[in-house]
Write a protein that binds this DNA or RNA. Sequence first.
DNA 1: TTTCAACACGAAAACGTTTTCGCTAAGAAT
DNA 2: ATTCTTAGCGAAAACGTTTTCGTGTTGAAA
Lengths: 357, 357
Amino acid sequence: MRKKITLKQIARELDVSVSTVSKALSGSKEISEDTTQKIQAFAKLYNYRPNNIALSLKNRKTKTIGILIPEIVHHFFSTVIRGIELIANRRGYNVIVGLSNESFSKEIINMEMLANGSIDGFILSISKETLLKQDYHHFNATINQGIPIVMFDRVVNEVNCDKVIVDDFNGSVKAVKKLIENNCKNIALITTMDYVSVGRLRTQGYIEALEEHKIFADSNLILKIDDSLDVENHLEVLENEIERFFKTNNTIDGVFAVNELYAVTAMKVARKLGLSIPEDIQVIGFTDGVLSKHATPSLTTVSQHGQKMGEQAANLLIDRLEAIDSESDQYIVNDNPKHDFIKIVIETELIERESTK
Amino acid sequence: MRKKITLKQIARELDVSVSTVSKALSGSKEISEDTTQKIQAFAKLYNYRPNNIALSLKNRKTKTIGILIPEIVHHFFSTVIRGIELIANRRGYNVIVGLSNESFSKEIINMEMLANGSIDGFILSISKETLLKQDYHHFNATINQGIPIVMFDRVVNEVNCDKVIVDDFNGSVKAVKKLIENNCKNIALITTMDYVSVGRLRTQGYIEALEEHKIFADSNLILKIDDSLDVENHLEVLENEIERFFKTNNTIDGVFAVNELYAVTAMKVARKLGLSIPEDIQVIGFTDGVLSKHATPSLTTVSQHGQKMGEQAANLLIDRLEAIDSESDQYIVNDNPKHDFIKIVIETELIERESTK
DNA sequence: TTTCAACACGAAAACGTTTTCGCTAAGAAT
DNA sequence: ATTCTTAGCGAAAACGTTTTCGTGTTGAAA
């Protein structure tokens, strides 16, 4: 068991000082060529690598990004992670992942666990419970400690930080317009309760598109699913709700759903009711995941470009971290609260598949 | 901007020494009640939290686990992460994630990046390229450095470490037996090339089940997909292969596929060919993910219990880490290479849905 | 010969902890 | 009055780095 070798050990073996070893390894010309050669050879032989923790302590930065998301078994969130990881790695950062599991307290615990020196900054998406409670003190607290945050997807105006969001509103508009152009006359919306911001925006987009085309937004055509119940494990509930909805509104010939699951379930129910897709009823979902792609018929969706969101978020955070870095050398700035925060909006894309004409 | 406060600052403010502060905060009875009170109150007021990095350096352990997986946008792997994170958090550990992206070199780079003090141990699943190359020196190297590894799912005999696997062989046997019991006479297998161990084991299970029932394992009924090509983005290729396969073997009345995607694609093709499921042809897949659950008809699958695998792996790793910890106090052991490594086998479960009778 | 720069290296501080060991003063024991 | 405990605290080392600031030696310039 060859434990990792340290500067001190190299120094002792070669009978020089630690400082000499450090300098030799970094190629400082303060050290003679002879000694440098000798030290570098020895270091290579023993596969010396500087201890990251020691470096972190010395430099007071960890080169690690903390990701805090509600859920990881979720296509969208995992694509975002992939994007973050890609950029982080490329720019020399590691990625540490915490899951809030949609819980307020776990979100706080996780933040505090990581905010004690383990990470340089956060990239996060707010948990449902936090959004419900509207309690954002922990975010502001960590920002005040000098730890920057970048929020993505589920963001909130109450916190002053960089943000990366998808254009939920226009994405919905696009989708619903598509249905209108495809000659749908009675377009239904299947959505969630309003407290998660993205749900609200998507609903507004739906209404906007209809109004632009002078179509009356009939509230009977809007189905709000209570997603506080665990839909994933009680599919029947969802199916029954949708079935009842379809039966009481049997003129529906177009459906826009705010997520994949609602959309494919709608297709399933429609088929069960003897409707064929897209002939009798056309369906579009939000969030382009594996379900949309592999459903039969495959589902037309509004793609959120999760990976791109992750990449942008990572770049934003790292840019800011490195800006702070160089700032600390300078004169004022430190107490300037007027860093202007950036909000990046990712354009959605309508991916047309078999569920629309 | 209130930066985090340190022991030193508290000491200076309260005009005591750093050691006194440290002891007072840990409740040492070396310090008088008065001073303890005063210090604790002050610390609380300023929300003192010990710096993790400093602790890591001092204790020579980070309380972080490195996860190294081929891909994160993947239902199985994300469930495993969820399991790891659950246990890790519960036992006071953090989780840092690296993605190999199925590449040998990225696997190595990521390992080295983390092995320099950032983590206490690894939980990993081997990349395809590494399995192809059969080059495992980096695993053995990090183990030799004293960093324990737990491998899951894609494991390999050449590396001596704890392992958590699913019983691929028996899982397949179970599935195929089910098809036999359901009266399938010509059961096809859709699998991958052999080099990924799990694929091979699943194929063997298929053959075993047939032989047990004295059924000739007709090699024409085995379709091997070359998954070096990016199937996810070239679905047509997959569909065409399967279609050709079905057409040349039109007696097939049962299909066992080694993953979800192959299974649902098989269903799609079958339906296209006018076969109804499960009446004309029954289908079972391996890996219970979101596709299986939400496909129409929903897919009978062999569940791998990814989350449980993650939990077991995390417990295994942390147990070993803490065992090492207490060992270091003791006399011998250190150079004992005969730590017996544990291999946990998770039982699969056949989840019956609509794609079988 | 004296002075000075350049060269090659070492000592020490710093990052934030914890812990061991000493030290001082006060009260108890002799 | 002297010695011994003990309570209460501080100094310093250690974890592994990097970096600043010496310092001694050498050869050249004066």
